[in-house]
Structures are given as C-alpha cells and as structure tokens.
Design a protein around this nucleic acid. Structure first.
Lengths: 204, 204
DNA sequence: ACCCTAATTAAACGTTTGTTTAATTTCAAA
DNA sequence: TTTGAAATTAAACAAACGTTTAATTAGGGT
C-alpha cells in the first residue's frame, strides 16, 4: 500500500478529531504505523502535510454545480433540490473534514490556509447564487436575500452536525444513535431543507 | 484592577483567535501582562482556566426565553422574533466566543467540557422548541420539523459569521468591511431570518 | 554480484510546552 | 514597627514538541 496515503488517512482522522495543534506528528505516525521521520521525509513539515491533506480532499469535492445550472430541462426549484442533496451528501460523507475546515476558518493562524479553504467552500457558491437569481428573474422565485439563503442551507446542516453530542441532545436521541451514519437523519435533513426552500422561494 | 479578570480577558481573546491548544500559557501571560506563574496560581492549570472562562461567559448568557414563552400578550411569531433578535445579538456580540465553543464541540478532546458546552448552547433550545410546538397546536404555525427549524435559525447566523474572510467573500465585500461590527449586517440577518420563518411557519 | 537511489530507522537535536519551586515583595492588621 | 499571609517574581523542571541527522535496509537496473 501507498505510505503517503496511509499517512494522509491517519492525518485526516486525527486532525478531524483533535485539530491541527491538538495532534502531534508522533500520534499521526503511530496511527499510520510508520516512523515519525517519514512525515518530514514525505511532506516536509506538519504544516505542509496539512496543506496536502486539504488539497487532496478538495480535489475530491470538485464542483459539479455549473452543469446543473445550465440544464434547461429542469425548473429552478428542481435544480436547487439537486444542490441541497449534494450538500447533504457531502457533509454527511465526511463531517470531520467539514469540521476541520471550519475550525481552521474560525482561527487566526495560517491566514493563507484560510483563504484556500474559503475558496474551496465557496467554489459552488457562485453557481448556487446564479441559479437562485435566475429563478428570481424568471418569476419562479420570490425576491429573497440570495446570499443568506445559501447560508441557511449549508448552515442548517453544518450546525446540526457540529458534533455528535450536540446532535443527539438536539434530537433527543439516546447514546447509541450515530448521527453521522444515520441514513434516516440524512433523508430527514434533505426533505426538511427542500420544504424550507419551497416555502421560502416559491411564489404561492 | 482585578488580575483574575485581566487574565480571563486575555484568555478569551487568544483562545478565540488561536484555540486552546494553539495558545500557550506564556502568550496569555504576555497579553495580560502578568507573570506566567500567576495563571497556575489563580486557576490551577490551563484546562481549569478554560473551564473558568466558559463558566463566566455562560453565566453571562443566561436564558431569558422562558419568560417570553409565557407572555400571553404576544403571538407565537412575535415571540419567535424576539428569540431571533436575541440569537443574532448574542452571536454578533462575541462571535469569537461562539467560535471557541463550536470548535471545542467539534473536537474529541475533553468530553466533559463538550457536555458542558452543549448544555449551555441548548439551554434555550427547550424554550424555543416548546414555543414553536405551541404555535403548531394553536393553529398559527404549520406542522414543521421543530428541531431542524431551530438549527436553521442558529445555523444561518453561525455559518455566515464562521469567519470574517468567509463572510466577506460570501457577501462580496471589500477588505475593510468588518462583518462582526456591522450593524447593517446584523439588521439584515435579523430581517432575513424573520422573513424566512414567516414563510416557513405561518399558514397563508 | 554489484551499484545506486529510495525508503526506513533509532537517536538526538534544540525549542517550547505547562507547571513548580523557592525566594522576594507587598501591604494591611496587630 | 512588627508580623504573617497573600501576591509576585525569576528560574528551573521534566515532558513533549517538530524536525534533522546519520546509519542501515531494500530492491530493481545494469
């Protein structure tokens, strides 16, 4: 197996759980079952390792929204449904990576990294925004605050999944309920957001 | 002046900016202009210092929602308006503390601290939930997903303010725009959320 | 079988970490 | 003025940190 990938996987796990400064290079090495020196050898430094991780994961989340926007056979609300499902899938797929990005964003260390992350998170922002504005111009949607509407979509998912403890308490679930792996919850969030957006956007 | 308070203020600033593990005791001491040993002297340890900080701030954010719910002269949507304004005020007042709490929540260190934080954040959750449910039973509100509705309110604000960089990029503002201190933005978020909740909750 | 480069290792590097120690200063009560 | 507890300090502590070094191993190309 590829040792670089093994290290990146261990890094993802530990940075996700304990954050960048909360994780030591030695911990990562132990998790990946490699010698600590291998991390410097392959990545140069802990910080470069972080950059590599974000880069790799970001490439994974390539934006496919641009195509959806252009599709002429779909109504605007149908396009939005696709985007909602896409967001829900994405965050449920790797909530820890999502946390990692937002944790980094909310801190005042490594400003260049913050810029890169904002770039990644907003990659699809433009497409969604354009789509909603098209919907408004076409008369299908009400004249809403476009930017904040997007914040509501992503923010709802993000807040709900901000931690397993929090999610369980909010939804009054018992301890063995695993929010991140619950398909039921995922569907519930998707359906809720679509209903929210219907009443928010569609002209009665 | 009270040295304990000086240290707590410095801690708030630095933990907010760089996180718990990202801030050293010596940095805090320098910021507060005290000897590093004073932190152990007054608080015992860095972790206890953190607990003291959260405790102090949490007391500051005491829940006043219970009274609002009982008030018979207000309609349910009016009660919700008050709660929305309260949330907006709260997060805009000290976004860095808000970040600090959520950062800690999203990490798997110090589980007891996580429980305490979830407790604080959900302190008003029950009141809001009850209020929405009352609104549904009285026929004023549609039968919505109560828990996720609350997640939308808090999540929207939280996501928008997740970082100054992010906020500026989302709203396409220039570099000298300070989101956290913009009264205009605060009002915009409040108005947006009220409109969102009107269309989401009120029966046409 | 030889060679060379890449991979891997244990050990050590110099810093920085949170915390403690032991000595000193401060200052109000006696 | 003396006394004693609280406050404050500089220095030192051991442990952990990210990283480097220097030596060794591995393995395909010639």
């Amino acid at each position: 197996m590829d040792k670089r990938q093994t290290i990146l996987a261990a890094t993802m796990k530990l940075f996700g759980q304990k954050g960048f400064e909360g994780t030591s290079v030695r911990e990562i090495a132990a998790e990946a079952e490699v010698n600590p020196a291998m991390i410097s050898y392959y990545f140069g430094s802990k910080e470069k390792l972080f950059e590599n991780l974000v880069e790799q994961r970001a490439a994974f989340l390539k934006g496919v929204f641009a195509e959806v926007v252009k599709n002429p056979t779909l109504s605007h609300i149908e396009k939005l449904y696709i985007m909602i499902d896409s967001y829900v899938d994405r965050i449920f797929l790797s909530p820890q990576f999502h946390h990692l990005l937002h944790r980094e964003l909310s801190m005042e260390r490594r400003p260049q990294m913050k810029d890169a992350i904002a770039e990644i998170l907003l990659r699809n922002f433009v497409s969604v925004k354009k789509m909603i504005q098209d919907g408004i111009e076409s008369g299908e949607f009400k004249k809403v605050d476009t930017e904040l509407t997007i914040a509501s979509i992503v923010g709802t998912i993000s807040y709900l999944l901000s931690s397993e403890v929090m999610c369980r308490k909010m939804l009054q679930k018992n301890k063995d309920f695993n929010p991140y792996q619950s398909r039921k919850l995922k569907e519930r969030v998707g359906e809720y957001l679509k209903e929210l957006m219907r009443s928010h956007l569609l002209i009665k």
